[in-house]
């Protein structure tokens, strides 16, 4: 109580000393002029994002997908690994179990419940996409920061490596990396997809850091004798993350597609008891003519999820683009 009164009196005194045009109102807030001049980039970006239907649609798609992945073990009616309907499968006649009571989508070519496999497959997709993006982002942050902070020969070396990696088509690179591993697993898929993203993140971050390095507040920090490490990690890097964060959202979409492609090509886990959409799609290719729904469900889900991440990423990029600010 007393301390707040004291500050109030101090404030009154200083307002009195400085005359009535002092820019602080009675509530201690800055002038209205200061307010709209100083809306931060993030706040104004969020305001635009919130009203953008493209963002909302994408966010709803992602939200549902994540919710499904989290709840999958609880709502899946059956164990996805059990061949419950095996007796309805006939290899010779290309017959697989049709939709029936308790099995809304029927069974797959081994008689396992397709619906439960679809639900639990979302977990794998989310895991692969998230891990691959995080690893790619981490590697890109390290390389990009090295190049952007040191410049000179470090920059040249890092960027040459990045250029070489970028000159190879990304899926081809991922396939090559995936094939390098003696034992294929879900993890090799994650690693392959992640490594492909590292140079993209690195180049993006380096470019942003080089431009932030020229900004007024970095010059001001140098004028204060702030040490180089603090200049990089406090003044340059945190101000360079915007484009990288947007890129991560887009990479989530790419990772979903790339991971599915690798699994489709048989570079995923050898054991298919844990369902994965790309692998399910790959396994369905023998039945494209007779049982198209086996491919339709995983393919549709992959497209919807990738589209959701793309919509969110693109609308974020648009919202953060300074040229779009009004």
């Amino acid at each position: 109580m007393t301390s707040s009164r004291a500050t109030k009196i101090d404030r009154l005194a200083s307002v009195a000393a400085r005359g009535p045009e002092f820019e602080v109102g009675p509530d201690g807030q800055g002038s209205p002029n200061g307010h709209d001049a100083g809306v931060s980039l993030a706040v104004s970006a969020w305001r635009r994002l919130r009203r953008n239907p493209v963002f909302i649609v994408g966010a709803v798609m992602i939200g549902l997908f994540v919710l499904l992945a989290v709840l999958a073990p609880f709502i899946a009616p059956h164990d996805p690994a059990l061949r419950l309907l095996e007796d309805q499968v006939s290899r010779a006649n290309n017959e697989i179990p049709p939709p029936q009571d308790g099995y809304p989508l029927g069974g797959d070519q081994y008689g396992r419940d397709l619906f439960s496999r679809m639900l639990l497959g979302s977990q794998q997709t989310l895991l692969v996409a998230a891990l691959a993006t995080v690893i790619g982002l981490g590697g890109g942050l390290v390389l990009g920061t090295l190049a952007g902070a040191f410049g000179g020969w470090v920059d040249s070396v890092v960027m040459r490596i990045v250029d070489v990696l970028l000159s190879i088509p990304s899926l081809l690179l991922a396939v090559s990396i995936g094939a390098l591993f003696a034992e294929q697993s879900q993890f090799t898929v994650i690693l392959a997809v992640a490594i492909v993203q590292i140079p993209i993140f690195a180049r993006l971050l380096r470019g942003t850091m080089l431009s932030v390095r020229e900004s007024d507040h970095v010059l001001a920090a140098k004028a204060l004798g702030v040490k180089r490490r603090a200049i990089v990690f406090r003044h340059i890097l945190p101000n360079s993350l915007g484009p990288v964060i947007v890129q991560s959202t887009l990479v989530l979409a790419i990772a979903v597609l790339d991971a599915a492609a690798l699994s489709f090509l048989g570079l995923g886990a050898a054991d298919d008891s844990t369902p994965e959409w790309g692998q399910m799609l790959g396994n369905a290719q023998d039945f494209f003519d007779s049982q198209p729904h086996l491919a339709f469900w995983p393919a549709g889900c992959i497209i919807v999820v990738a589209l959701g991440f793309t919509l969110v990423g693109e609308s974020m990029r648009e919202a953060l683009d300074p040229r779009q600010r009004r």
């Binding site: 001049a37 980039l41 007024d216 010059l219 001001a220 004028a223 204060l224 004798g225 003044h235 101000n239």
Partner: peptide
């Protein structure tokens, strides 16, 4: 710099780090 020599720049908004 910052100890013996100080400097104040023209544009106060861009001279401050926006995220700190």
């Amino acid at each position: 710099r910052g100890r013996d020599l100080g400097m104040v720049f023209q544009d106060p908004l861009s001279s401050l780090n926006p995220v700190v």
